[in-house]
Structure formats: C-alpha cells, structure tokens
Amino acid sequence: MMETRTDWGRREPPLEGSNFELYGWFFMRISGLLLVLLAVTHMFIMHVFNDTLNLDYEFVAARWDTPYWRTFDWLLLTLSLLHGTNGVRVVLHDNISDLSIRKLALGALYSTSLVFFILGTYVIVAFVRQA
C-alpha cells in the first residue's frame, strides 16, 4: 500500500516567540477590573462620603497613618500608570508608522510615566505626619 503523505507544504516550526503582547493584553483586563474597584472606592470616599471642600492635610495624614490606605493609594497609582501607559503605547504603535518618531514618542511616554511613578511612590512611602 502506498504511504499517505501528510506533510504537504509543511514549514519549519517558528522559534519560541515573546509572550509580552499576550501578558500585556491579559494585564489590561485584570488591571482594568481592579481599577474599577479601586477608583470607585476612591471616588466614594473623596466625593460622596466626604466633601472635597472639607478635605485637608489632617484628613490625608490620618488616612496615611495606616499602611492599609498607603497600600491602597499606591496600588491605585501604580495600576493606573501601568494601565494608562500600556494603553498609550498601543495607540502610538498603531498611529506612528515612522520608526524613529515612534521611538521618540515612546521614550517620552515611558520617561514621563517613570517620573510620575517615582514621585508618587516617594510621597506615599516617605510621608511623615507633621504635628
């Protein structure tokens, strides 16, 4: 009996690719869900249960006496920065076809995000209540 050929047009299997886009896509979904929870909680505390007009140094300092609220604020900062940066990265990739201009724009985006992240983290971690 003639042997059946099943390898028509077979190509070399591709090399192991990077998982960056896959995890980036998944991260957007998870961080998006978490951000809805965090941001809604934040909004209720700052704008519904309290009036923004009454928010002062004392209010923030009292919140940050507990590591819980510091962690909450840091999570909100980090997730929104990462989520937003990745979103803008995707927009820049889609809309700037010139590679050198794209690199420049991406560089500006990453450095701005990094500065905000360092500043925000520094404030949250190093904050000491003044009497």
């Binding site: 299997p13 690719g17 998982n19 960056f20 886009e21």
Partner: peptide, 8 residues
Amino acid sequence: EILKDVNG
C-alpha cells in the same frame, strides 16, 4: 506561537 507575536 505565530499569532502571539507583536503583529499577531
């Protein structure tokens, strides 16, 4: 593997 590429 091909489809998880940056252009996939």
